[in-house]
Design a protein around this nucleic acid. Structure first.
Length: 323
DNA sequence: AATTGCTTCAACCGCAACCCT
DNA sequence: TAGGGTTGCGGTTGAAGCAAT
């Protein structure tokens, strides 16, 4: 029985043979796919159009990057998933050459388990209840709130109606997304925060910029390609923040972190540019920045409610994450 | 060597959104 | 506006491969 779209056809199912692949590749490279429903017939395949499309997108496309995921890709998946949840197609857009199916499989077969091993709920990215006490004991970390503090990149602010990002924004840009809300006196993230893998804050008073985006956790993640030691080693939600001199950054970076340095420098550069834009905007109109933006509300929605969890940044609901 | 259990990932399914007439 | 066709997406399945016994 085939799909409803091709139920009248006699279609083959299951794995594709090399011959079928060759037929499909030959046809699409010379004619393009056009209407997928007509591809099987024109390409001489006994498959349904849907199957052809899937095979092309997930396996035969020439721009696909095969092979295992790099630690950087892994980190990006985790960080974007933290924002978007199981929106694999959107996540895959941040990983050139990767398909949603590939990302989904990698998540289910690998990342999910690693997060669980770290005591993190793969759906919410929060600490699992059973691991909270363990982490307190293991890391000397302490927090006195009934709700876990999610690791979401952005926390809530009802006045935040602007962002220069949308769902098509590459994650490198997204990472450098600076706060634009006027409530924040320090709307951008200092470079040393981006480059310091140990830059964490005990609460929002210590780091106002963390209200808008925990870029610190992202950057520390990027600087930590293994990707799964942030909780245990850095205790990313607590600990003391010790700004480093920029000139000492390079020395502090591990060899694998050096690989990411260009990206981080680019991020820092973008932050500085946005900082300049921000200052300019503020001078022109304190309120205008929310009007003329290309803000994507779909992004906003998914940002604010990742996996049904949500961090309310109300002052009445602060956490005491003391070490 | 045979069996069993586990993991991975390609492929399928069903649904929703979109497009066209 | 309605309806049919197409496309895109996320969840699920099951075959293949591998490791343990």
């Amino acid at each position: 029985m085939g799909h409803h779209c091709c139920s009248k056809q006699k279609v083959k199912r299951g794995l594709w043979s090399p011959e079928e692949d060759e037929k499909l590749v030959n046809y699409i490279t010379t004619h393009g796919h056009g209407s997928w429903s007509s591809v099987p017939k024109l390409a001489g395949l006994q498959r349904c159009g849907k199957s052809c499309r899937l095979r092309w997108i997930n396996y035969l496309r020439p721009d696909l990057k095969r092979g295992s995921f790099s630690s950087q890709e892994e980190r990006i998946i985790i960080d974007v998933h933290r924002i978007l949840g199981n929106r694999w197609a959107q996540i895959a857009k941040h990983l050139p050459g990767r398909t949603d199916n590939e990302v989904k499989n990698f998540w289910n077969s690998c990342i999910k388990k690693k997060l669980l091993a770290q005591g993190l709920d793969p759906n919410t990215h929060n600490l699992l209840p059973s691991h909270k006490t363990n982490n307190i004991h293991n890391n000397g970390c302490n927090f006195s709130h009934s709700n876990p503090k999610p690791t979401s990149l952005f926390s809530v602010n009802s006045q935040m109606t602007d962002a220069s990002v949308n769902m098509n924004t590459p994650f490198s840009t997204l990472l450098s997304f600076p706060p634009t809300d006027n409530n924040f006196s320090s709307p951008t993230i200092p470079i040393y925060e981006l480059l310091n893998p140990n830059a964490v804050w005990t609460n929002q008073e210590q780091n106002p910029s963390s209200l808008m985006g925990s870029a610190s956790s992202v950057s520390s993640s990027l600087l930590n390609p293994s990707g799964f030691d942030s909780v245990q080693e850095n205790c990313m939600w607590s600990g003391s923040f010790q700004p480093m001199e920029i000139t000492k950054q390079d020395e502090m970076l591990q060899p694998e972190q050096q690989v990411l340095k260009p990206q981080l420098e680019m991020m820092a550069s973008e932050v500085e540019m946005k900082k300049a834009d921000k200052l300019s905007d503020e001078q022109n109109n304190m309120d205008a920045s929310f009007v003329n933006s290309n803000f994507d509300f779909d992004f906003m929605e998914s940002t604010l409610m990742p996996c049904g969890t949500f961090y309310n940044a109300s002052p009445m609901d602060q956490f005491a994450w003391d070490c």
